[in-house]
Design a protein around this nucleic acid. Sequence first.
DNA 1: CCAAAACGTAACTTATCGGTTACGCTTCAC
DNA 2: GTGAAGCGTAACCGATAAGTTACGTTTTGG
Lengths: 133, 133
Amino acid sequence: MDGVRAIADPVRREILELLREAPLPAGAVAEHFAISRPAVSRHLRVLLECGVVEVATEGRRRVYALRPAPLAEVAGYLRRLIGPAPQRGPAPRVGLDALATEVARTRRERRAAGPMTTRSGASAGPATRRDSA
Amino acid sequence: MDGVRAIADPVRREILELLREAPLPAGAVAEHFAISRPAVSRHLRVLLECGVVEVATEGRRRVYALRPAPLAEVAGYLRRLIGPAPQRGPAPRVGLDALATEVARTRRERRAAGPMTTRSGASAGPATRRDSA
DNA sequence: CCAAAACGTAACTTATCGGTTACGCTTCAC
DNA sequence: GTGAAGCGTAACCGATAAGTTACGTTTTGG
């Protein structure tokens, strides 16, 4: 799951969006950012390590291009995570026996429980941060 | 794009996979990991801040449940990144759409390869090493 | 009441990350 | 050759993240 690391940083995301349009030499990539060129170079190296870009040396230029396969893997993972929940009757796939036991115990003891104050942190927490201006 | 931060850590990913099966109290989540319970608690807090889980207080238990919307946003972003390249010339369009639509979406693939001497860092040899004193 | 259960928080340590500046190595133009 | 262009690497630094132990708080139960 290296693709996750690739998109973990806003600069790297923007690099990927750039390379989505067309392959670019490192210098051209760096020009799109306010940070220093070595910083961009290291981001490109991380992207290489994650397998989401590939590089072609053309003379003294290094041309980077998008390589979407690892990103597709992440997308697939997310689809699995989001998608329809598996049936809890027969054994799904992973070992969740102790888990099901715990759920049963929870449900059993809920008979005398108070109201459920559902609160999703994104709408109440003070730490919703936005980045990538 | 807070969903990215949510899945950036392997422990958090595993927590999400657990909660995909069913909502769980914090202690039951913590039991599935080798790390300490406070560590899991903080991971849960991060997941709350990212909006990918919600919590319901039942007596002295705090039951966490998956909240897939932000993950769907990330999936949509990835689809746009992977998908067919936009026409070159007019303003390219990388915005944010398709949030809940992502759940029921099927995959669409596109294969395009450049005739370059590819050296993608992940599948090829290790990083280029220099060796000199 | 009081103790245990369940959970979050605080303080601290360590590792990693992302940025900077300085520098070295190829390749091209002349 | 020689200088400049293009790019990666090394060394360093501040901020952040993830882990630990210790502790506080609320609920439950005898």
